[in-house]
Amino acid sequence: MNKASQGIPMGTAYAVWTGIGAAGTVIVGMIFFKEPTDFWRLFFIATLILSVAGLKFVAN
């Protein structure tokens, strides 16, 4: 995160960092711990990932 915050604003770096962690945790839970994978859960995970990517693209 330290390296990322040198190129983009700190708020954006933190949002990207936590978004990737949250999405990764949910995806690992669905794959390894057989948590439910219904439409809405996948929809909101995709929305989170797209929002994080959007923040990174508009940061500069």
Rank of each mutant, 00 (worst) to 15 (best):
A4D: 08
A15V: 10
I8Y: 06
G19A: 08
V52K: 09
L55W: 08
Y14M: 13
I31E: 14
G24S: 07
F33A: 15
G29I: 07
M30T: 04
G19N: 08
N2F: 02
L48T: 14
V16I: 15
G21C: 08
F33I: 10
G21N: 14
A4Q: 06
I49F: 03
G19V: 09
A4S: 10
V58T: 14
V16A: 15
G54Q: 04
G7V: 10
T37M: 15
A59Y: 05
W17Q: 09
A15F: 12
F33N: 12
T37D: 07
A4V: 14
P9Q: 08
L48I: 10
F39E: 13
N2E: 15
K3W: 09
D38K: 08
I27Y: 01
L55S: 08
V26T: 10
L48D: 09
G21W: 06
M30F: 01
I45F: 01
M1D: 12
T37Y: 03
S5L: 10
N2I: 04
T37K: 15
F43G: 01
I27T: 04
Q6H: 13
R41N: 11
T37N: 06
T25C: 05
I31T: 14
N60E: 07
I45C: 01
A4L: 15
F39A: 10
G29S: 11
V28Y: 10
T37H: 05
F43Y: 12
G21R: 13
G21Y: 08
L48W: 05
K34D: 13
I45W: 03
A23E: 01
W40E: 11
A15D: 09
F39N: 06
T37V: 11
R41Q: 12
L55I: 04
T37L: 02
T12I: 15
R41Y: 00
